[in-house]
Design a protein around this nucleic acid. Sequence first.
DNA 1: CCATAAATAGAAATCATTTTCATTTAATAA
DNA 2: TTATTAAATGAAAATGATTTCTATTTATGG
Lengths: 143, 143
Amino acid sequence: MESEFAATLKGLNMKVTPKRLAILEILSKESIYLSPEEVWQLMKERFKSIGLPTVYRNLEDLSNGGAITKVIHPDRKLYYFCCRNQEHHHHFVCVFCRRVEDISYCGNKEIVNEVSTTLKGKVLSHVLQVYGICNSCINENES
Amino acid sequence: MESEFAATLKGLNMKVTPKRLAILEILSKESIYLSPEEVWQLMKERFKSIGLPTVYRNLEDLSNGGAITKVIHPDRKLYYFCCRNQEHHHHFVCVFCRRVEDISYCGNKEIVNEVSTTLKGKVLSHVLQVYGICNSCINENES
DNA sequence: CCATAAATAGAAATCATTTTCATTTAATAA
DNA sequence: TTATTAAATGAAAATGATTTCTATTTATGG
C-alpha cells in the first residue's frame, strides 16, 4: 500500500520521488517551521546526493499545492511548515522555539463586510499570523 | 515654521535632512505602496546625487520608528506605505493598482482569547493584511 | 561659527533564491 | 518487463534585492 505522502503527491499530480517523500516526512515530523537550508541539512542525512535547488523547488511546489504552508517571517526569508489541518485557518507562531500551532479564529466575515461596505472593494484573500510565546516556552522561562 | 515631516523626524530622534524629508513627502503623496527602488527613482528627480542605500536605510529607519509601514507582499520584497492613521489598524491592498486603504477591523481580542485559552500561550503581535480589488479597479474593469 | 556625531554616496559585498542544462528517474504504454 | 517520454534532479552558475564599508559631507548644539 502507498504512504499517505505518496497519496498527497499524486493528488497534486506530482511524481512520487524519494526526495519528495522525504521532504514531506521531515516537515511533518517537526512541530516547528524550517528553512529550505534546514530541510536540506536533514535531507543530507538521508541522501548522498541532494541539491539545494531540489529542496527549494519542491518546497515551493508543495506549498503551491497546499500540502505545506509558508510561514510569514519578519526576516522575509522562506520558512515552511506542514500542518494536517486542511480547513482554512491561521497560525500562532512562537518567537522563541518556532513552534507553529493552529488557531481557528478568522475574521473573514467581518473583513469582507467592512471592505464591501466601507471601501466598496472585493476581498480576494487575507493573511493573518499571530506571534507570541507558546506554552512550553512560557513555562521554561518562568522564574 | 517647521514642516509636519520635520516634526516627525525629530520625534524619532532622526536628523532633519533633505533626503529624509523628500522620502516622507514622496511616500505621503502616494496612495499606493512603493518599493525602495521606486522611491529612489522619484528621489533622483529631486537630487542630483542620491544613493540607493540611503533610501533603503531611511525607509527601514522610518518604518522602525512607525512613521511609515511595511506592506506584506507575496514576493517577499520590501514595500512601504505612508499612512496617517496612528491607531493600531490593518490594511486592504489592491492587487491591481497597489492602493492601500485602512481597515479598522482587528480580531485582536478574539485572538488573544483563543491563544490564552486554547493554547495557553501569550500573544505578542499579529499581522493581518487583506488583498483584493479596490473600488476604482472594480469600476474600471466592469464590462 | 565650531565641533562632532550622524548621514550620505559610491562601490563592493552578501547571500538567499533561481536558472541553466546535462543527466537520471518515475510513470505509462506496449 | 521493457521502451518511451516527460518530469525531476544535481551541480554549477547566475541573479538581484539588500546590506556593508569607508571616505566625505552635513545637521545640530553650543
